[in-house]
Nucleic acid binder design. Sequence first.
DNA 1: CGTGTCATGTAATCAGTTACATGATTCA
DNA 2: TGAATCATGTAACTGATTACATGACACG
Lengths: 190, 190
Amino acid sequence: MARENTSRYAVLGMLTHGAQTGYDLKRAIGGSVRHFWSESYGQVYPTLKELVNEGLATVVVESGNIRPDRKVYTVTDAGIEELRHWLVKPVELQPSRNELLLKLFFGRYVPAQELVEVVSKFRERWVEDVAEWADIQDRLRDNMENDLDLRNRLFTLEYGRIVGEATIHWADEVIAALVGTTGTEQESSS
Amino acid sequence: MARENTSRYAVLGMLTHGAQTGYDLKRAIGGSVRHFWSESYGQVYPTLKELVNEGLATVVVESGNIRPDRKVYTVTDAGIEELRHWLVKPVELQPSRNELLLKLFFGRYVPAQELVEVVSKFRERWVEDVAEWADIQDRLRDNMENDLDLRNRLFTLEYGRIVGEATIHWADEVIAALVGTTGTEQESSS
DNA sequence: CGTGTCATGTAATCAGTTACATGATTCA
DNA sequence: TGAATCATGTAACTGATTACATGACACG
């Protein structure tokens, strides 16, 4: 089964959202979509080359005056079509690997107190993330550029908020339950 | 930075939870932890070999009477120690790639109606999953084997329920917002 | 008699990160 | 003067999946 190379679409999409160079692209991905996507240079540059080979983008080299040659990429109509085609395909079920849950599952090998600490740290990270996203959400709404991109972007931020709060809530429950059993002896030798 | 080879711990952990052979292990992972973990044979067999090389497990070949040689693995004390060591380490922040959010983010290139469909399918899958996990949760609680493993396992199922419900709730909001704008023209040509 | 289960594994390939390599310019 | 930013890329490696290869037995 063709494993879906989603990086292609992330790159293609960001090009339609104003990014022009590989460097640009990487920064843009580290910006507005960083809470749900990431790419490395080792992925971005080869992908751009491929897109050009396949006619989904064109490149113009801006050499001369400034620093290293700047390669400015532009999406072609075929590129937009490719993006559209991907957009309407139902999402693949994500690989679903959750390391924290795996640790909890095998949790009997350490004292409850240790589990509490691991879950607490996990919780703290979510608290920070949710706060950050809520912040971006507020600033975006103030900007009041009332277009489709804004609406869609708010959806993604809202996801972070809702799912994040649920995660925090779950962590609270788990911590409470574990603290309730502290003192209860965990199996501590094989 | 050492990328954390979590498969090792999944394999190690499942060995402590009753799995004995590679085949076993794969099935066990496809069972009780399938909603948050998965492994392929191509990962399981080499990992088992490594664990033995590192003294974290031992293997006894059961040849003779039955079909192909059955290789029965057992975790050593060092293996349990290794598992413990991993358990108390804070979880790495997950790569966080969410394809659905990426699609929403680039959503302006397709009509709102199409987005509604993509989100709806995503939602449906979560509804099924949550129902399934709630089911397992109920059955487990009835079994009433009141040990630590049960408690920890219920935590993982509870995660699925809470986060799943939040996800469904979010999807409802998004769908409602999108349906509210159907008819509003999306940009449909570059 | 064919399908499913038990049971092993490897080779090819893919997706992705990290580290390396280079180098000018700008700003504190 | 030294760090940050702009800007390119490649090579090595890792983690993981998929497809392939083999084969016997049990059950309907």
